[in-house]
Design a protein around this nucleic acid. Structure first.
Lengths: 135, 135
DNA sequence: CTAACATCTGTAGTGACTACAGAAGCAAGA
DNA sequence: TCTTGCTTCTGTAGTCACTACAGATGTTAG
């Protein structure tokens, strides 16, 4: 047999069984064959497609981006369109990095005021209460 | 009157009306007075508390962290406990920054292969399909 | 034949809100 | 007093990308 059940697909691709079924429900994975008893049977193509989805997810692309890559919106995209999606995605990532770095600075700044004592009197919480603090 | 309705509280603190009601539902904000007609009335204390919550959220603390700060888990926390929470939070932020930077590198790497042509033949998508790619 | 395991469907939960629908309170002007 | 228009009310459902069950049934090795 060239077909295999969902458990093997899951083991082979590193994608959870429930996630595979979820991808099918939202139309990202096509409906596979079934055994007479109703169990899903996948082939090589299914594994390739699922791995593609997993890699794209690992790179942080949204389900909707992936739908586009797979041509599920309309046509399969041109190379330029894919680049455009990736480029916008990277811009979001870079903005997130900048945001988180600013957050780190602000947090570190108020943490510096902390005495770390065992009393409930905490400059860190005070900093959150004071409108004119470093925050 | 020293009391004011939810709209003014919202305007004053920059927190959405629906969010204020949400905070009340989950017990982060206490139940306020009501007019005879059933509308919420807040005082200065309410505004101070809500601003505290907003600042903590801006710093990325979870609702549960904030519950701890406000002493809603058990007692009001000691300064050392607050510092510990902040410290763990900062560690998560730094890990996220590192993750996102790695993501940027990987993404940039495969974007470099892209021809940005108008054809559907896309090295970027191929990179996601190939198991042995740079990704 | 049976025990153990794999898989099935469907629903609800996660976090931190946001977006409505439909009803009702409230304040200012005519 | 009445109306107009704004504000607020409750309750539910949607967001994103899954994850975690419960309870039933298929499949396979010994």
């Amino acid at each position: 047999m060239t077909e295999f059940p969902i458990g093997r697909l899951s083991a082979e691709t590193g994608v959870n069984i429930e996630t595979i079924r979820f991808y099918e429900k939202i139309g990202l994975m096509p409906k596979p064959h079934r055994t007479e008893g109703g169990r899903r049977l996948y082939d090589r193509g299914g594994a390739t497609r699922l791995r593609f989805i997993r890699r794209a997810r690992e790179l942080g692309f949204s389900i909707d981006d992936i739908r586009g890559f797979l041509g599920l919106h309309d046509q399969p995209p041109t190379c330029a369109e894919v680049y455009e999606t990736a480029s916008r995605h990277r811009a979001v990532i870079r903005e997130k990095v900048a945001d988180l770095k600013r957050l780190d600075l602000r947090l570190s700044s108020i943490m510096g005021a902390c005495t770390q004592s065992e009393t409930p009197d905490c400059p860190l919480l005070d900093a959150l209460l004071e409108p004119r603090s470093v925050i």
